[in-house]
């Protein structure tokens, strides 16, 4: 059997990333709706815009961050490349490129999922229905992940798929943490001041980590321990550390199994990131500045993507144009 086409590796990596992205966004919208609205009302929708750094793009098109406008912007807006609809469209386009490779079941599920999203009307996003809609989106993304696990032939394409998923998860977790940290700590002097626990609660739920955290820490909840859990915990599948460990193992296995000489740069970045995660304590990180630390992780994540792009996908260099609409950085 011939080796995997570079273009297919690229598409598998991004298909995984976009589905993962949509799933995370659905969870954030759901949690925001359910756990944060009682005390802060409409202001919390602003926090979603901050999370994705979308304030400017949103306000170009909308006067006010009403709940309905923000929900539409993130779920159904076809012009917003980061909306769930756009993410699943891109995932589906990648799946279309990959159709010769992926199982028919994977394709059909994504195709139906996308067609259902396209058929949604504005009223499906109304307040009483948004939780149900978010469940549908999360479950559809998870169905994709499950079908893929159960049917994707275990060649190099599967490795690139797994790496895409792990990388996107790590990225999403750092984003969650970063924006909340800012919100909760308005100035340097406020570190350690009383905090709104419901916000941290929501944060954990946005990463689907509330119950896992409770098991690890049955009593008490501090911002530092929540941040530490999401960054470093070995066994929580969405912690940055767990994602990077999985990514490193997959990359190393891929290179060995297919005797690939590429991937040197990406491997070096993974190793460096693992080093900085494994040695760190959350107290030291906070003392040094959590935002700066998270920034450092995000830079490394981009460097990993860039390394894979150059050495496996045949992309030119960092920030270069994606080869086609189906794959974008």
């Amino acid at each position: 059997m011939s080796n995997l086409l570079a273009r297919y590796a690229d598409a598998a990596f991004w298909m995984a990333r976009y589905v993962e992205r949509a799933e995370n966004l659905a969870r954030v919208l759901d949690v925001n709706e359910t756990f944060s609205r009682d005390t802060r009302g409409g202001r919390n929708w602003l926090s979603v815009l901050q999370l994705y750094d979308d304030g400017e793009r949103f306000h170009d098109r909308h006067d006010e961050a009403t709940a309905a406008a923000v929900r539409h912007f993130y779920v159904l807006d076809p012009e917003n490349p980061d909306s769930i609809l756009s993410a699943i469209r891109t995932a589906r386009e990648n799946a279309r490129t990959l159709r010769p490779l992926i199982s028919t079941e994977m394709w059909i599920q994504l195709n139906i999922f996308y067609n259902r999203l396209r058929a949604l009307a504005p009223e499906d996003l109304s307040e009483p229905r948004i939780a149900r809609l978010c469940s549908f989106i999360k479950e559809s993304c998870q169905a994709h992940t499950g079908i893929t696990e159960g049917t994707f032939y275990r060649d190099a394409g599967w490795s690139f798929y797994q790496m895409g998923r792990a990388l996107e998860r790590a990225d999403q977790t750092t984003r969650l943490l970063d924006v909340k940290y800012h919100l909760l700590l308005p100035g340097p002097a406020a570190v350690g001041s009383p905090v709104d626990l419901s916000q941290w609660n929501a944060l954990l739920r946005s990463a689907s980590g509330y119950h896992a955290y409770r098991r690890v820490r049955p009593s008490g909840m501090t911002p530092a321990s929540v941040a530490g859990f999401l960054l470093f915990h070995d066994d929580f599948p969405r912690s940055v550390n767990a994602c990077i460990k999985a990514l490193g193992a997959t990359l190393s296995d891929l290179r060995t199994r297919y005797g690939l000489t590429g991937g040197v740069q990406a491997m070096a970045e993974v190793e460096a990131l693992r080093g900085s995660l494994e040695g760190a304590s959350i107290e030291a990180v906070i003392a040094g500045g959590l935002h700066e630390y998270i920034d450092g992780i995000q830079v490394r994540l981009m460097a990993i993507t860039d390394g894979l792009g150059q050495e496996f996908f045949g992309r030119a260099s960092a920030g270069s144009e994606a080869p086609q609409a189906a794959t974008e950085g």
Binding site: N3, A9, G262
Partner: peptide, 22 residues
């Protein structure tokens, strides 16, 4: 494999495809 033109390279009158292994 389903290839597109950009997946193919011709060197010394031989046709190759770009894979993750070159």
């Amino acid at each position: 494999p389903l290839v597109e033109g950009r997946d193919l390279v011709v060197e010394d009158d031989r046709v190759y495809m770009r894979t993750i292994a070159g």
